[in-house]
């Protein structure tokens, strides 16, 4: 594994579950590492106060916009196609409001759910490319911290010491 000067490396520490996570992250932050470069990895979701990265676009924005688009799709199918190709059936109106309502409700839900899911998948996959490698030991009940640095970064050894002092079982650099 040759280190190139311009390619970031990951400083990774594996910890027991008893690690004092908040104080460790504060120490790392005090060394001037930006929140974007720190990742906490765990087998279950930890409570919010340990989440480091701020939220960019909230997921529910996608949901709402997709829902509105879904209502439009429903109005097109139930109302638009009927108006474009009017065929008389029974005594019913050609464009029937309750029908348009029901279909729009379903298409709204369909597009909202699919879009939320796709947005989540994109987020998860995108984070894979820019983050730490997967460590199977996490799933056996450990917590990992990874810090993204450039190889020439002077804080490298300082951060290694911080991790070791906090009780890291393993420390890697990739």
């Amino acid at each position: 594994m040759e280190e190139r000067e311009d390619k970031p490396i990951l400083l990774y520490g594996l910890f027991d579950a008893q690690v004092k996570l908040t104080s460790l992250i504060d120490q790392v932050r005090r060394e001037g590492v930006h929140d974007d470069a720190i990742e906490v990895i765990s087998p279950v979701p930890l409570s919010d106060m340990m989440v480091v990265k701020p939220v960019t676009i909230p997921l529910y924005a996608f949901t709402i916009i997709a829902g509105l688009f879904g209502i439009g799709v429903g109005i097109f199918f139930a109302g638009g196609t009927a108006a474009l190709y009017p065929i008389r059936t029974g005594g019913k109106a050609i464009v029937a409001p309750p029908v348009v309502g029901i279909i729009s409700y379903e298409t709204m839900m369909l597009l909202a759910i699919i879009t939320t899911f796709v947005a989540m998948v994109v987020k998860i996959v995108f984070l894979y490319r820019s983050g730490a490698q997967h460590d199977p030991a996490i799933d056996e009940g450990a917590i990992g911290i990874s810090v993204r640095l450039f190889p020439h970064d002077v804080r490298r050894s300082v951060l290694r010491d911080i991790l070791r002092q906090a009780g890291a079982k393993e420390i890697h650099e990739r």
């Binding site: 008389r88 059936t89 029974g90 005594g91």
Partner: peptide, 17 residues
């Protein structure tokens, strides 16, 4: 029937007035 109950329930417009 003018107000045929069989017509609106066909999902493919096979029955119409």
């Amino acid at each position: 029937c003018n107000n045929a109950p069989c017509e609106p329930v066909c999902p493919v417009y096979a029955s119409y007035h």
